[in-house]
Design a protein around this nucleic acid. Structure first.
Lengths: 202, 202
DNA sequence: AAGTTGTCGAGACATTCTGTCTCGGCAAGT
DNA sequence: ACTTGCCGAGACAGAATGTCTCGACAACTT
């Protein structure tokens, strides 16, 4: 590692440029005018040179994905209503409401498409998805500790049902994604858990 | 319509070329070497001119989606075991097993990515998804007629829970997609239906 | 204060891909 | 025989990615 041998010399990374790039990326991704986000437009809008982007990110997809992850990681508080169904309903409502916005949905769609092509973007997508899944998994684990979910239940599959529905609707766009769907899915999942619990107890 | 006024003159469409294009498309889509499928490679591999492709399809995405739909839409029989859980287990096992194959998974991933960019591909994807959803919806409707699913249940959401998990795992690749997952999800969904049924009855 | 190192914005550049256009050849009907 | 429209092949324009080079300059060392 050159890090330990020589701390750092020369000019440091311009944080303002980094922020401008990520902010503009979200902004352009959110446009739903069909125009794809290009590196040139991104650099121009952020007021930076293209090389400044490629110096810090390996590809266009990586920039867009990081911008999206930063955006989507915020504004989803983890609720604590005391019941599985209540927690799920609050969490899913916040999540679906976020992903259902035209701007965010557009970001998600572009990022997932990019992740299928670009290995760098794919890694970032995996990391992003994993971080989101961990939050929901934690919510379910607390419910399991309270005895609302059977010990043998497949939490990963429950998580997948949530994010599966979300991505599926975002990517295909065949149905809405809002509070109604969140409430319905929260009910479905807590019903699932309750039924399995009854099985184990009986 | 010129169709009725003048039946058709001149050389007819070459069916062999059409088949070659679609077959080669599936072949190239299935490659998981990261190389994107280009029109040039497609035309070259099929031994046709580019114009022959663009004469019959509006865009690259449209070709790929049609090829994908042709491949993925087959070989999923609709079971009739007499119970919701049995039907679901059989249907999901066949569906997941198909989508879990490396080649088919690669085709699906590429196609979904294409559908995010190309409006023509997007339409085809919608149609394909709709046709698949209809089959599963039919299966659920029969269960509802038998009284295994409550009248007020949201069948569309149950369908999304299935295909959502499928697409999510195919696209992100964070977990397996096979018989075990099919069985678990079938159980979860039938439990969910049973719980809702109990609510309505009680 | 001078020197070194690495980032900055800007833009030329090669490469690749899409989709259009044109060409001579030819097959299917009249 | 003659007309019409598809065929393979490839040139072409347009757009995008990612590399490279340039002079400027900021941060840190000596």
């Amino acid at each position: 590692m050159s890090d330990s041998r020589r701390p750092h010399t020369g000019r440091r990374r311009n944080e303002a440029a980094r922020r401008a790039i990520l902010d503009v990326a979200v902004d352009l991704l959110g446009r739903d005018d069909g125009a794809p986000v290009t590196i040139d437009s991104l650099a121009a809008a952020a007021g930076v040179g293209k090389q400044t982007i490629y110096r810090w990110w390996p590809s266009k997809g990586a920039v867009l994905l990081e911008a999206m992850a930063e955006r989507a990681g915020t504004d989803i508080p983890v609720p604590d209503t005391g019941t599985l169904r209540g927690d799920l309903e609050a969490f899913l409502a916040a999540t679906f409401r976020g992903a259902g916005q035209r701007l965010t949905a557009s970001v998600l769609r572009n990022s997932m498409a990019e992740a299928q092509r670009d290995p760098h973007a794919r890694e970032h997508m995996r990391a992003f998805v994993e971080s989101r899944r961990r939050v929901l998994t934690g919510l379910l684990e607390r419910a399991r500790d309270r005895g609302e979910i059977a010990a043998g239940a497949d939490l990963a599959l429950m998580v997948d049902q949530v994010y599966g529905v979300l991505w599926y609707r975002v990517l295909v766009g065949h149905g809405p994604l809002g509070d109604a769907q969140a409430a319905e899915l929260a009910r479905a999942l807590s019903d699932q858990a309750a039924a399995r619990l009854g099985d184990a107890a009986g």
